[in-house]
Design a protein around this nucleic acid. Structure first.
Lengths: 238, 238
DNA sequence: TGTACATCAGTGAACGCGCGTTCACTGATGTAC
DNA sequence: TGTACATCAGTGAACGCGCGTTCACTGATGTAC
C-alpha cells in the first residue's frame, strides 16, 4: 500500500540510478558524479540528496542492482529450457555470463573491476550477492550428475584431499562440484575480463565462437559426449 | 655514452615512476596524480613537467613498465629450471602469473583493470606488449609436445574447424597450441582477477592450493600423467 | 686556467575546472480537523 | 467542504578541496673559447 508520493519518490530514485548508469557508460565507472547526474536530469545537485544520503549510498545501490541483474540474467537464461535439460541450461547460463557482461559492461566493471576511488563497499551486502549466480550453476550441475548426464572427472576424485582443504564448505553441494563450478567460472571470467578491456585483440578473431567452444570443452571434461543441440523447439517462450 | 646530466635525468624519471607506483598502491590506480607525486617527492608540481610532457605520458610509461615487468617475471620463473624440463617451466610460469599480480596488484590493475578516466592508451604500444608472455608459454608448450612430454587433447583436434576460424594466425605455433595457451590463460586471469578484488572470499579457503591445483588440472588435460616434482636440486641459482 | 654564455632543473603564482557536501530558503502537495 | 498546518521536493549560493596545465622566473651546472 504505497501512496502517490511514495511511488513518485521511488520512480525518481530509479531515474537517478538509470542516469548514473548512463553516465558510467559515457565516462567510465570513475567518471560517475552527483553533479553529472543532476545536470543530465535537469536537477540541481542538492536535489539528489533528497533521494540518496551521499554518493557512496548511490554507488552501493548501483552495485546491489548490478548483482541482482546479473543473477536474474542467468536465471532467465536457464529458464529458456525445461528443468531436466540440464546441459542446455548450463550452456545457456555460461553464455549469459558473457552476454550480460558485454551488454552491461559498466555494471560488470562496477562489480568486478577496480574499486571506485574513495568508495568502500559494505562487505555484508556485496559478499552474499556475489555468489548467488554460482549457486544456481552448482545446483543444476548436481542435478545433471544425479541424472547421469554429467560426471565429475576422475582427476577431481584423485585429488580430493587438496580440493577438500582448499575450498569453503557449502550447503547442499559436495566440494567436487564447487570445484567444477569454479573451474568454469574462472575461464568465463578471465575471457570476459580480457575481452572487455580489449586484450583478446591480437589472438582471437571470432570471440563468440571461441567462447562457446570454451564452454563446450568444459562440459566435455564433465563427461558430455556430444554437444547439445539446444533446439529452439524446446525453448520456452518467456 | 651518457653524460652525468643524462644519468641524473634518467634516475629522476625512474624516481617519479616509483613514486607514482607507491601512490597507486596507497590510493588506487585512479588516485594517481601529478600533484600527489610531486608532494611525495618534495618537488613542486611543475618540476614533473621537465620529465614527462603530461600525466598521460607518465601513465603510458607506467603501463609499458608493467608489461615488461610481468613478462620478465614469467621469464625468470621459467629460467629457474633447465630448458628441457618443460613441465616444470610451464608450472613455474603459471604460478608466476598469479604471484606477480598479487605482489604488484596496482600494476596488474593498471594493465588489465578499468581504464583510468580521461586516459587513452596508445594501442600501438600496448597491444604488442600484452602478448609477449603468452608467446613464451606457447613456445615451451610446443617444445614439450615435440618432446612427447605433453599432447594436444583429442577434443581440440576434433573441433579443429572452430578453433581454426576463431583464432588469429600466429607465427611459429599451430592454432591448437594457441588455444591451449588461451585456455590456461583465461583460468589464471579469472582466478587472479577475482582474488584481487576479494570475490573468492566465500568459496575458496586456501587460494594457493586451489590455484596450484587448477594449474595441475590444466597440465593433466594436456596429457601429463603425474605431477612434476620441481626438485630444488634442479633449480638454477639465479 | 679563467671567462662568457647556453643549457637545464626547479620554483611559485595563477587559471579554470569539477567535485561532494552544507545550509537556509521557496513553493507545492498532502493531511487533520 | 474549506481552512490551517505539516511534510516534502527542489533551489541556489557558498565552502573547501584537488586536479592538470601554462607562464615568467631564478639559480645551478655544463660547455666553448
Amino acid at each position: 500500500m504505497s501512496t502517490r508520493r511514495e511511488r513518485l519518490r521511488e520512480a525518481t530514485r530509479e531515474e537517478i540510478k538509470a542516469t548514473a548508469r548512463q553516465q558510467m557508460r559515457e565516462k567510465g565507472t570513475a567518471g560517475l558524479s552527483l553533479r553529472g547526474i543532476a545536470a543530465e536530469m535537469g536537477f540541481s545537485v542538492t536535489a539528489i540528496y533528497r533521494y540518496y544520503d551521499s554518493l557512496d549510498d548511490l554507488i552501493t545501490a548501483l552495485i546491489v542492482d548490478a548483482f541482482d541483474a546479473q543473477s536474474e540474467a542467468m536465471e532467465q537464461a536457464a529458464a529458456k529450457f525445461p528443468p531436466t535439460r540440464y546441459v542446455d541450461r548450463l550452456l545457456a547460463i555460461m553464455e549469459s555470463y558473457r552476454n550480460w557482461a558485454l551488454e552491461n559492461s559498466t555494471d560488470f566493471q562496477l562489480i568486478y573491476g577496480n574499486p571506485i576511488p574513495g568508495y568502500h563497499a559494505p562487505r555484508e551486502i556485496t559478499v552474499p550477492k556475489a555468489a548467488s549466480g554460482m549457486y544456481l550453476v552448482g545446483q543444476i550441475m548436481a542435478d545433471a550428475i544425479d541424472a547421469g548426464q554429467l560426471t565429475v572427472p576422475k582427476d577431481y576424485a584423485q585429488s580430493a584431499a587438496e580440493i577438500d582443504s582448499g575450498l569453503e564448505t557449502l550447503p547442499d553441494a559436495p566440494k567436487s562440484i564447487l570445484y567444477a563450478v569454479l573451474t568454469a567460472r574462472f575461464q568465463m571470467h578471465g575471457f570476459v575480463m580480457l575481452e572487455i578491456h580489449g586484450h583478446n585483440v591480437g589472438t582471437i578473431a571470432d570471440a563468440d565462437a571461441i567462447y562457446r567452444h570454451l564452454c563446450l570443452t568444459f562440459l566435455s571434461t564433465m563427461g558430455l559426449k556430444s554437444p547439445p543441440t539446444g533446439d529452439r523447439d524446446h525453448e520456452r517462450t518467456t
